[in-house]
């Protein structure tokens, strides 16, 4: 349904999107995961022709955005970063204007349905300036749905929502996919958000596609990273290097270390530590993708510790 090939966008010396390619299939929820500034929003803006890419191809429904912009945008509903509205107009008026601009005149029944769906029923005739950020975000989602698009693009849609709002949004996205067979592309910098709803995902880092695939496949690898908290991490690393000489282990600090290993070897590691009289205060595992994403986050914030 969506195919991006070799997309490049630079701003002066800075390359925001670096030869990025990705594919989205019809009927799936597709997650774009990346840290802030990774290039997710720039990619989405290029997809929606808010930004002109330097090179590369963006195709929707088999058509190119640069040549069939209006046809494509007529089939898309989108919410880019935070939701902004005409504050001096009511939510109802904002929704109707947005729909009309998309070339669709909604019936009152459709308007009521969408307001109900996003939890704004009863507030539709209030001026938007009286809305909280969460309510504005809900109205933004209503705007993306009112003209019944085939593809919905949501850039960090959970921004500004309270915990209940985030759960409601997640349920709404799943309903849109399951009941109305919509294709949804959403971006986030939080792995757990993507993990819970996306069928497929891509990790974008420094404008590049680092990895793309089915979410369950990416998250269910046999290799895990174990992080253990003990009294003295140096002595434990010695034990590990004797039992698993081929495994790379990493001392995080004097009291904790991490090691990459097969899931099936976890019980061996645990047994060896107990048998050697090591006091274990914490024993956590992460899959490879989680670890990878965490590392990206870590790299961005402070230097990585090496063994």
């Amino acid at each position: 349904m969506v195919e991006i090939s070799n997309l490049v966008k630079t701003f002066g010396q800075f390359t925001a999107v670096d030869n990025l390619s990705m594919q989205v299939n019809e009927g799936e929820v597709f997650g774009m995961l990346g840290l802030n500034g990774a290039g997710k929003s720039t990619t989405m803006r290029c997809m929606l022709s808010l930004i002109k890419p330097d090179s590369g191809q963006i195709q929707f429904f088999g058509k190119n955005i640069s040549t069939d912009r209006n046809y494509i945008l007529g089939k898309i509903g989108c919410l880019i970063e935070k939701s902004d509205h005409y504050n001096y107009l009511s939510a109802h008026k904002n929704l109707v204007l947005s729909s009309k601009l998309s070339g669709y005149i909604p019936t009152q029944k459709e308007i009521d349905f969408v307001f109900e769906l996003v939890g704004l029923k009863g507030r539709e005739h209030q001026q938007v300036k009286t809305f909280s950020q969460g309510m504005k975000q809900r109205l933004g989602i209503a705007n993306t749905l009112i003209h019944n698009p085939s593809l919905i693009i949501l850039d960090e849609p959970a921004n500004g929502l309270d915990p209940q709002g985030i759960i409601d949004l997640r349920n709404l996205i799943l309903r849109l996919k399951n009941e109305w067979k919509k294709t949804i592309i959403l971006s986030s910098h939080i792995l757990s958000e993507i993990e819970l709803i996306a069928d497929s995902m891509v990790i974008i880092h420094k404008g590049k596609n680092v990895i793309q695939g089915k979410t369950n496949e990416l998250l269910s690898g046999n290799e895990v990273v174990v992080e253990v908290e003990v009294d003295d991490s140096n002595s434990v690393v010695e034990i590990i290097s004797k039992v698993f000489p081929q495994l790379p282990s990493k001392i995080i600090d004097s009291k904790s270390f991490s090691v990459k290993m097969q899931k099936s070897d976890l019980n061996v590691l645990h047994r060896e530590l107990v048998n050697n009289g090591i006091n274990i205060y914490n024993f956590t595992t992460r899959n490879k993708l989680e670890d990878y994403f965490l590392k990206l986050t870590y790299e961005n914030e402070q230097p990585v510790f090496h063994s």
């Binding site: 808010l50 046809y71 898309i76 509205h85 998309s102 070339g103 705007n143």
Partner: peptide, 9 residues
């Protein structure tokens, strides 16, 4: 943003 992502040139 909302305006320019509509099917209008």
């Amino acid at each position: 943003r909302s305006l320019l992502t509509k099917p209008v040139s």
